[in-house]
């Protein structure tokens, strides 16, 4: 069970799971925990590599490039994990922005 004020984040694609404080950004909490369940790009809401779809749970987001998360996409629960703050336990699906090239080559599922 997660400590107080930490929320459980689960990645449906690969079963990845880690905790994230309410004031922490999901991608940064993942990296701090030594995990690599979500691809890491610029960490600033600019590149779209860490885009996810929030399947379950409450959240808030900071500023994100509208190229990668436009208003309609935001309404559908898409977010950049580097600008994603949990407000409860989250279940996420990877959804790399179609406007970025990452990854270069097809890689086996992690």
């Amino acid at each position: 069970m997660a400590p107080d004020h930490r929320h459980r984040v689960t990645i449906r694609d690969n079963g990845g799971s880690f905790t994230c404080g309410a004031d922490d950004r999901v991608l940064i909490a993942m990296e701090k925990g030594g995990k690599a369940d979500i691809p890491v790009g610029c960490r600033g809401g600019g590149c779209g590599v860490c885009r996810v779809r929030v399947l379950e749970g409450a959240f808030e987001t900071g500023p994100m490039s509208k190229r990668h998360v436009g208003p309609a996409e935001k309404a559908q629960g898409l977010a950049l994990a580097c600008r994603l703050y949990p407000r409860g336990d989250l279940v996420l699906a990877l959804d790399v922005s179609p406007h970025c090239l990452y990854p270069v080559e097809e890689t086996a599922g992690s």
Binding site: V40, G41, C42, G46, C47, V49, S65, C100, L101, Y102, P103, V104
Partner: peptide, 9 residues
């Protein structure tokens, strides 16, 4: 690394 080749703004 993939990031150098693909992450741009």
């Amino acid at each position: 690394n993939d990031r150098f080749m693909t992450v741009v703004t």
